[in-house]
Nucleic acid binder design. Structure first.
Lengths: 329, 329
DNA sequence: AGCTTAATTGGAAAGGTTTCAAGTTGCTCA
DNA sequence: TGAGCAACTTGAAACCTTTCCAATTAAGCT
């Protein structure tokens, strides 16, 4: 009870394999043959073997999606990608590396061995040997979310610095002068740029940055908690805190509620990312929204045009960022 | 500058292709040949072509993950799956259908055509022709999250009814007698069972269910909002509400805050799922936690044992459920 | 009808791997 | 030393498509 092959179809329809193949692809077929082939396919329940096809055409119609983790942002992107790429016949195979070089290498290895058509790569900043190898390979690589300086390839990024600066400036406009910041890992551009935005905002306002108020975390919930805990314990605590991503914000919120503090009353918060949840927390949180649909659309377009060969040169597109959701007091 | 093939390796190493192949698989190789092969592989940068291999072995080392959407729960599961299956050499290709028959069929079509080894299927309740076809095909199907009655295959489910009953009973114990319920779609077992648990809790306590307090939604945030809005507008509003998933809970919370109501003071909430966020909202929310790691582990085991052929009979495993996080007043 | 040109078709080769039967090597033991 | 045996190697076939060239059929024109 093996799966029928194109040969079975050809036999049943009384034509040559080549003809069936052409039917499957070009569709340029004499009418009588076409109906016979269609009949045969239906009768046999034939389904083309993608593997054999891929082997011949050297196209797997598969895109790899390699991210550090499936958080709300990346899942959102994934959702859109699956939808739009599926519509064009592509499937997505997912990998995640928890910022571990081993995992990245392993994923790339697998992607390469699977002859994936293109790969969307997020969350790496180290250009390991494997990454380099990948970049020089024949499959397009799209760097996404965080920049990897010095690497020439398609990139889809977010203007982290400008958005952070904008948000922090708002805080300053509201009268805050001591603003804490909780950054992510400073090895990556995302962490660097968001911090940079914070600093620029101060600079522009003629404020100096108190290094004591700069907490370097690593994007995790616990980092946010710890940071906030440290801020609260200070003699002269900040009146507002800027978190570089939503997970750390959650940690910070957790810490606040543990200490009986209230957002918007005791302290104000600014945060990158804007999960729906944040709308539930009473005013006092300013959130920076990332345009997920827009980013995903860009990614899709770049992938497709690269694969069509119609892509313009390595183009680095910066998706812009929407404004804050709720205002601080 | 084509990718080197096993033949190139064989040539360079001065052995036959078969030998290289066996090195790649069994590893039972004479030592001198082994070193020569390893050398050649390193020199050429050879990487096995998974496609060709898959074609021969009829194993793609790929598992499909087909869910209705990548929400927090499914993303959590995906994270674990990617990790544990990757460790065993499997990749995961993801699909989502937004509960649309077309999308499901398309995904299954693709999965079948790609000769995926196994498929994890969540969120379908309708057994369409395609689903039926899939079930009778040769790739194992694991039904996950929601039951599809009448279908015989591996299943990994959650004891929705018992957990819901337990949680609602707690509310009743706290003295609530008018408890609203916001269910998901009642076509699926998940929606049905969670509602059933709600009813059972009432039954057991000798309370009758006021049908006015039963709101049938469809898992979305808006449903939660609308439901809560309706409840609040009643002459005799419920003193507590049970939401069948976290998205609807968020909607409900949103509605409450829009109306200036406070959870824990004006009304109590019970909810299925327990995203970290909920810990930030002041007491009054009782959450049912789904043991994501445990579920994912089960899934992995079942997939692997099915593929090893060592699987026991169709086994329906119910992952148990942890208790509520914070208590109601 | 007869001819030319365009459109389809047929059949085989190729793509990179695994597998299998048959052949070879190397080792042990008498 | 040589027989016997286990362990390993070899080379070709097979897996299912697509693609290509030559061969056939259809269509267009006078």
């Amino acid at each position: 009870m093996k799966k029928p092959t194109i040969l079975d179809v050809a036999d049943t329809a009384g034509v040559a394999v080549g003809t069936v193949s052409r039917y499957l692809n070009d569709q340029r077929i004499r009418k009588d043959n076409r109906t016979r082939i269609e009949q045969a396919i239906a009768d046999l329940g034939y389904r083309a073997n993608t593997l054999a096809r891929a082997m011949k055409t050297e196209r797997t119609n598969t895109v790899g999606y390699l991210v550090p983790k499936f958080d709300e942002f990346n899942s959102g992107i994934l959702t859109q990608l699956v939808r739009s790429l599926r519509a064009r016949g592509y499937s997505i195979v997912t990998f995640h590396h928890s910022d571990e070089a081993d995992a990245i290498n392993e994923a790339l290895e697998s992607a390469s061995s699977r002859r994936i058509d293109a790969i969307i790569l997020s969350g790496t900043h180290e250009v390991t040997e494997k990454v380099q190898e990948l970049l020089t390979g024949e499959q397009p690589v799209i760097i996404f979310n965080n920049d990897v300086p010095g690497v020439e390839t398609d990139k889809v990024l977010v203007n982290d610095e400008a958005a952070a600066q904008d948000a922090v400036s708002r805080m300053i406009d509201f009268g805050h002068t001591r603003i804490g910041v909780v950054t992510g890992d400073l090895n990556g551009s995302t962490g660097q740029n968001r911090l940079q935005g914070y600093k620029k905002a101060h600079e522009q306002a003629g404020l100096s940055v108190d290094e004591e108020l700069v907490y370097v975390g690593n994007w995790g919930q616990l980092d946010g908690y710890t940071a906030m805990d440290r801020f609260l314990g200070m003699e002269n605590p900040p009146s507002a805190v800027f978190f570089s991503n939503y997970l750390m914000t959650i940690g910070g919120l957790d810490c606040l509620s543990s200490n009986g503090k209230q957002v918007g009353k005791d302290i104000d918060l600014v945060t990158f990312d804007d999960p729906d949840m944040f709308r539930l927390i009473p005013p006092g949180i300013t959130a920076i929204e990332q345009p997920i649909e827009q980013i995903a659309r860009h990614l899709t377009e770049i992938v497709l045009s690269r694969l069509d060969g119609t892509a313009p040169d390595h183009l680095a597109i910066f998706a812009s960022i929407a404004r804050s959701s709720c205002a601080a007091p």
